[in-house]
Nucleic acid binder design. Structure first.
Length: 460
RNA sequence: GUGGGUGUAGCUCAGCUGGUAGAGCGCCGCGUUGUGGUCGCGGAUGUCGCGGGUUCGAGUCCCGUCACUCACCCCA
């Protein structure tokens, strides 16, 4: 490669310190998911286009996969063409159907993988990014308490991470659909699309859209706006909805479900992670049938939702048996990349090494490697200096990487010579404080907080 | 897919009505001949995104193109 490559927009690549943070976050998510009994699976990167397009009008979002030499080959039907998956829910539904005979239901799984979308990239929107999903799927019927469970598990996982304050907003499709039907709306989808704009355009514009595009009367539109305005952190939203005076069976069911989720999550709500009913949340994806989730991060509202999901009763079905599910998906890249870009999150050093063993001269390399190995045997990440440069340069090498300790090997000539001019024993220097003391590679250990890099929030 | 903005050193950016490139930070060296950071002195680095056009002359003007970026759309 001769010319300098240009960055490829939308395919973020992290520097080592950021990658360290990402891996810590993924480890943390994984630990929490497993603590709650979710099993890991990984699905293939590609699905038949036919499967991928079941989700709706996203054909322009899917990257097709074909061999360079395949031009002119016959079969380009949706059934045989492959595309990279653009989320983890659709492949999971396919996986459940394919393995239904071997899985135990209700099936609880987590999945942390890359996904691809043909987007125009900008901050928080990528063409290749990592999602972390948890879902529970059952056969025929999935008890409602799992709606509460997935929210609680994700809340617990996110609460453990060093992030700005998060707000989990919950709504229910039955509630809003029931409400819209209850007021006499004919085109529920058009109403939802208009209401969904409420955070971006003024209320009177939304009202105009409701009247023009969803064929509502001014009164009906007012009721929709009033509903969308309701936001509470407890179940008091129920009374406020009822006060609007709309009667509908589906609405009542949705109200009861949403109240159950809000009450069920009240104990995981903290200052840094709040859960609330927000009746303007709709979600564009049409496979959701009940509970829906979105999550906003304080100071990063323009990113949109960083963690979303909901209940889908009909996504997976083989024609005779249906597999209803509920899940929630964290956008790991959307969450972290903006924090990295704004220097709100990084690692205390860019390499795992806690110790750099200084190299006096090339002849000493084997001896220095032994010192390093003695440290490693006790779990201390250690590297040997690459070149026998002046010690000042070697210290600088460590400093730039954030390696906190430099190990100076004992001078072998010390036995024969005057101890005043030679370093008789091994010494280790904390380059932050400058303190240096004699040490034995078989017993010395760094302070626990220096053993591994730490995730740090520079200004938090 | 639609509509804006921007491309100059490793990074952030200046560069006037066209006269063939600059600053800060970073990097390297020396002061300080095996202990860094501070300070002082010195040094290196650019196909001015790419292609074409106008001109005696283009980083600067024009056209095209590519990339990046922001907003919309949609979404993690």
């Amino acid at each position: 490669m001769s010319a300098k490559p240009t960055p490829l927009s939308g395919f973020p690549e992290l520097l080592p310190a950021e990658r360290f943070v990402e891996q810590q976050v993924i480890d943390r998510l994984r630990a929490t998911f497993e603590l709650h009994g979710f099993a890991s699976i990984e699905t293939r990167a590609v699905e038949p286009l036919e499967q991928l397009l079941r989700k709706g009008e996203i054909d322009k979002e899917v990257y097709l996969l074909r061999r360079l030499q395949a031009a002119g080959e016959d079969d380009d039907s949706a059934a045989s063409t492959l595309g990279l998956h653009f989320d983890l829910t659709v492949p999971f539904a396919r996986y459940v159907l394919e393995n239904a005979g071997k899985l135990e239901f209700p099936f609880r799984r987590y999945q942390i993988q890359k996904v691809w979308r043909g987007e125009r990239p900008q901050e928080g929107r990528y063409r290749e990014f990592t999602q972390a999903d948890i879902d529970v799927v059952s056969r025929d019927v999935l008890p409602f308490h799992h709606d509460v469970e997935v929210a609680r598990v994700m809340a617990e996982a996110l609460s453990d991470l060093p992030l700005p304050a998060l707000r989990l907003q919950v709504n229910n499709r039955k509630l809003i659909e029931g409400f819209f039907r209850g007021i006499g709306a004919q085109d529920v989808g058009a109403v939802m699309r208009a209401v969904d704009k409420i955070d971006k355009v003024p209320p009177d514009v939304v009202k105009a859209m409701l009247i023009e595009e969803a064929a509502l009367s001014g009164e009906q539109a007012e009721l929709c706006l009033a509903l969308a305005d309701i936001r509470t952190s407890d179940s008091s939203f129920v009374k406020r909805v009822k006060d609007l005076g709309v009667e509908n069976e589906l609405l009542s069911e949705g109200l009861a479900e949403l109240a159950a989720v809000i009450e069920g999550c009240s104990s995981v709500s903290t200052e840094r992670f709040t859960v609330e009913a927000d009746l303007r949340i709709a979600r564009g994806l049409d496979y959701y049938t009940g509970t829906v989730f979105e999550t906003r991060m304080a100071g990063f509202e323009s990113l949109g939702s960083i963690c979303s999901g909901g209940r889908y009763d009909a996504l997976a079905s083989d024609g005779r048996t249906s597999y209803p599910g509920v899940g929630i998906s964290l956008g790991v890249t959307r969450l972290l990349a903006p924090l990295f870009a704004r220097k709100k999150l990084t690692a205390s050093r860019s390499v795992p090494s806690a110790v750099l063993v200084a190299l006096p001269d090339e002849q000493s390399r084997a001896r220095c490697a032994e010192i390093a190995q003695a440290l490693r045997e006790r779990g201390i990440p250690t590297e040997v200096a690459p070149l026998p440069q002046k010690y000042g340069k070697q210290i600088r090498y460590a400093e730039r990487r954030g390696i906190p300790f430099v190990w100076f090997p004992a001078d072998l000539a010390a036995d024969a010579d005057d101890a005043g001019t030679h370093q008789v024993s091994h010494e280790v220097k904390d380059i932050r404080s400058g303190e240096q003391a004699a040490a034995d590679p078989h017993t010395w250990s760094p302070p626990a907080e220096d053993l591994r890099p730490q995730v740090v929030r520079p200004e938090a």
